[in-house]
Design a protein around this nucleic acid. Sequence first.
DNA 1: CTTTTACTAGAACTGAATTCTAGTTACCAT
DNA 2: ATGGTAACTAGAATTCAGTTCTAGTAAAAG
Lengths: 200, 200
Amino acid sequence: MANERITRATTPARRASVLDAALACFSERGLEGTTVSDIQSAAGCSVGSIYHHFGSKEGIAEELFILGVQRLNQRMLKRLRRCKTGEESVRAVVGEYVRWATRESAMARYLHSRDVSFSADARERLRDIHREYVEALFAWFAPFVETGEMRRLPVQVYIPLISGPIQEYVRRWLSGQHTRSPQQVEALFADAAWNAVKAR
Amino acid sequence: MANERITRATTPARRASVLDAALACFSERGLEGTTVSDIQSAAGCSVGSIYHHFGSKEGIAEELFILGVQRLNQRMLKRLRRCKTGEESVRAVVGEYVRWATRESAMARYLHSRDVSFSADARERLRDIHREYVEALFAWFAPFVETGEMRRLPVQVYIPLISGPIQEYVRRWLSGQHTRSPQQVEALFADAAWNAVKAR
DNA sequence: CTTTTACTAGAACTGAATTCTAGTTACCAT
DNA sequence: ATGGTAACTAGAATTCAGTTCTAGTAAAAG
């Protein structure tokens, strides 16, 4: 009855192993520097298998990107649920971002490296994911706006205000332009983030 | 006596025409979507000529990126020289960024799309350019720090604090995730920027 | 146990990036 | 001015990575 695509039990494992291999290769040789042969042999499978699951090299890159974004978003929302106040929440976002960027630096580097030049389809999926994330964040912060702890601003402006500076710093740190580690400036950026959105 | 490379009078023009053509192609079909044939015919020259001047497709991409960064930096410093106070300067940075991103959106989109995955050489050049820019900015803002108008912070932190949020917003706007134009939120981000670096 | 089809394998194909060879012009020294 | 040198240009030829194709294999469904 169900006309959904049937997938086998082994499929998720294979897809995951390809994505793992891809991230390792990309982080070592860059996106353009790695061939699908590299990914193929790192994942221990054939070209056929890769093209069956992902359709193209770009397809792998897109899936990996989307997976990374989803994991980061989930991680952030999970962290937020342990917070009591608006201030604690805002500071947690900055802290969690730093922890993610330093612990999963391969993925962080990959996510920072590209988001344009994807297929229209992938961009649409990303836009949906982002919208959903923005809404979840907004739902989390709304009560603190209501109580007057935080400023009322256009929805799309909270993420840039809170995460923009730390993201920009991390981007430059990942590309080797800064020597001071994100941890060393975390408190400073947390202060700035809170200062930007707290009620005056 | 000089063992510098001699370049002909026509060379800069040819290089410029190739870079112009490349930006047009990249902005229309994306970096990976454009072939060097595309660039070649748009610039009206041969493959040989392109490879003589740039060495590779990646070479073109790197030169274009570096050129774009240099132009943006120059533009910013030029704008700053018309400012009297620290506050005026900080607000000018945000405003000029918005103007640049909306007027030269092809270049803005290109600069936002990639900075990692360049050759070690290009990354080093970018690092030098960025360091020089940071120092120039610091030299500009130092007097305002001295007079107590602005906070004294680690050098590398000013750019993320001031431009991070607007950059992040523009990035998302360029990739079609936001409908509200940068101009509509410029004042808000200028306030936040000034608030982040002004003396308390 | 048979049928169906997701899935895998790897050889063959295609086309874009790059290299090569043969010129052609600008610049300089005499 | 003129001959030499090296920057520069052209476009055919090559290479090699991405993709497609065909022939299977094995897991689920009936």
